[in-house]
């Protein structure tokens, strides 16, 4: 008797709780992405780098449009002039009178573009290739990864020079060359992650629920890879920029009148003693950008993988 009353009371409260909860609006979940974002915002180095990066990108995009000079304009009155506010050449000019500020900003466009496009190419190819190889495993995996090994074994410089000789020097070729090499790393990382993911219970659960392979890769594997991939991307962009700079430095990169930070550093290095500003300014932009990307990448790694570090 007493039990019954007790039981009824508890039942009613459960129903009450449900009724109350039904009336309330849905609780908004906090996804892992939102969590990671909040952690990232608490990382001072990453935030400062992010702000700096935004400023650099803005300057590079907008700067050349509002500058009084074009990048290939030669100011014969001020050749090799040091930085000064009077002449209007804030960063000075090079040996043929071109404004260093405008050229640095225009070069930044190319450098950043190469960094972004080549990384994007390697991202798309690498993730799909790696996820497929890792998920299907067995013979498919073995063949696909041997292909990667073979391409990996090609000497990079040899490959670039070959491309230049066959197709002539063109900016697209730089994208192709860098992208063709960079996706290999991405594919390996993604494959490794996929191998460990595909044996987790939630993938097995998805299979038990009748989800087909295609959807499992797209809906379960790739979203769970993204953390690692994003970190790798932020660390790849500076690497690609550096490779492009290196190619330009040894004269295999962009062609005059176009330029990139690497090409500018190359030019500046030749006049280093007479006109150091031609070297310093592009070099500073290049270094700051590389620092920023690396700090952002570090911050993202900490934010996306909080279990690893305290």
């Amino acid at each position: 008797m007493n039990d019954n009353v007790e039981k009824r009371r508890s039942e009613r409260t459960v129903d009450d709780v449900f009724a109350q909860a039904m009336a309330e609006p849905d609780i908004r979940g906090r996804s892992l992405w939102v969590d990671a974002w909040h952690r990232l915002l608490r990382n001072r180095a990453a935030v400062v780098s992010g702000v700096l990066m935004i400023l650099i990108v803005l300057a590079v995009v907008v700067g050349p449009m509002i500058a009084p000079w074009a990048g290939d304009f030669t100011d014969w009155d001020n050749t090799s002039s040091p930085p000064s506010l009077e002449t209007g050449h804030w960063f000075g000019t090079d040996a043929v009178g071109r404004d260093i500020l405008v050229r640095t900003l225009e070069g930044g466009r190319i450098s950043l573009l190469v960094g972004l496009v080549a990384t994007l190419v390697s991202l798309v190819i690498g993730v799909s290739y790696g996820a497929v190889a890792g998920y299907y495993g067995g013979m498919t995996d073995r063949i696909m990864m041997r292909v990667v090994d073979i391409i990996y074994a090609l000497p990079f410089m040899f490959f670039v020079i070959l491309l230049m000789v066959v197709f002539g020097r063109h900016i697209i070729l730089i994208f192709v060359a860098i992208g063709a090499v960079n996706w290999l790393d991405m594919a390996r990382i993604v494959r490794g992650q996929t191998l460990s993911l595909k044996n987790t219970e939630f993938i097995e659960a998805a299979r038990a629920c009748g989800v087909d392979h295609h959807s499992i890769i797209l809906r379960h594997i790739v979203p769970n890879l993204l953390g690692v991939v994003i970190v790798y991307v932020t660390l790849t962009i500076p690497q690609v920029i550096l490779v492009e700079s290196f190619l330009s430095f040894i004269g295999l990169g962009v062609q005059e009148p176009m330029s990139s930070w690497g090409a500018l550093v190359n030019n500046g290095a030749q006049d280093m003693e007479s006109a150091p500003w031609t070297l310093v300014f592009p070099a500073v932009f290049l270094t700051v950008t590389l620092y920023c990307f690396n700090y952002i990448g570090d911050g993202m790694r900490d934010a996306l993988d909080p279990k690893d570090r305290a």
Binding site: G29, S31, L32, T200, E201, F202, E204, A205, A206, A208, C209, G210, V211, D212, S215, R219, H220, P223, N224
Partner: peptide, 29 residues
Amino acid sequence: LQIVFQDPVASLDPRMTAGDIISEPLWTF
């Protein structure tokens, strides 16, 4: 034919909401 797994947390995709997880078989079929 359905299965309930041993590890309750590991058997749910951490990137999906409860609603997405429960309704996935519905979307699939």
